[in-house]
């Protein structure tokens, strides 16, 4: 025989539900405040840490990269604003801002020569050279990558193109398609490529396709032609000068 449920039982059940809900909310509240105090204290530790190691962060690029990672995990971006607490504390915002300006200057100054393509490594050498007079800060590839990412906010002018082993920084707008980057990969080791390299295996391009790609890159100022070799060579100044020893 089924047990009959009276009004009292229903009321009791309702009450229990409400109580459980209340308790749950209470626990969640405690948990929340616990977590936020934890985050808060972590932040303050991070701030103390940052203040304490300010010079280290400024001088040592590896340390800087690790600090950046640490900040990113808890949702703090020291670069987000140059007016923020972090920037005023560390001056890191200023650091990337400066590097960004130097990147723009170098890319503009070398654009006639390389058509707006430069390897990340070459760019790094030039950034360091342009800074060395006043500061003795080392600038890592990671720093450059961060600064370039910040620059991309300004529009689609700055892009990083990964080749096989190197990374190229493109400072002019315009899409480079697969064929363009493929020819750059072919030229990575020597600084140049030839039509017959592109028409031979593994690419097996048609001569029309290869010439069309080279014509485009010449038009963009990214390739120089050398007609005094047994076969016409197409040089990428960005890749060629990366292979040269620094003065």
């Amino acid at each position: 025989m089924a047990r009959r449920r009276g009004l009292g039982a229903i009321n009791k059940e309702k009450l229990e539900k409400a109580k459980y809900g209340e308790k749950g909310a209470e626990i969640a509240d405690v948990e929340m405040s616990h977590v936020s105090t934890q985050i808060e204290s972590f932040r303050s530790y991070l701030e103390t840490f940052a203040a304490k190691h300010k010079n280290e962060i400024k001088k040592n690029p590896e340390f800087r990269a690790q600090f950046q990672q640490m900040c990113a995990r808890i949702g703090v971006d020291p670069l987000a604003s140059s007016k923020g607490f972090w920037a005023s504390l560390l001056g890191v915002g200023d650091f990337y801002f400066e590097v960004g300006i130097q990147i723009i200057e170098i890319c503009l100054a070398t654009r006639d020569l390389n058509g707006g393509l430069i390897t990340l490594e070459d760019l790094r050498k030039r950034v360091i050279a342009s800074r060395s007079k006043t500061q003795q800060q080392d600038v890592s590839l990671d720093d450059l990558t961060r600064a370039i990412k910040k620059l991309s906010i300004l529009g689609n002018g700055f892009k990083i193109i990964p080749l096989g082993g190197k990374k190229l920084v493109q400072s002019v707008p315009g899409e480079l398609n697969m064929d363009h980057t493929t020819t750059m990969q072919q030229a990575e080791a020597t600084g140049y490529t030839t039509i017959s390299t592109l028409t031979a295996p593994p690419l097996n391009w048609t001569t029309e396709r290869a010439s069309h790609v080279m014509e485009h890159l010449i038009k963009e100022g990214m390739v120089w032609v050398d007609q005094q070799a047994p076969q016409t060579r197409y040089y990428f100044p960005s890749l060629f000068f990366d292979l040269q020893p620094v003065k």
């Binding site: 140049y192 100022g221 120089w224 032609v225 070799a229 060579r233 040089y235």
Partner: peptide, 13 residues
């Protein structure tokens, strides 16, 4: 730079 000795066709270059 070898292409320095070939007159370039791109006018900016």
């Amino acid at each position: 730079y070898p292409p320095f000795y070939t007159l370039q066709t791109n006018l900016d270059t």
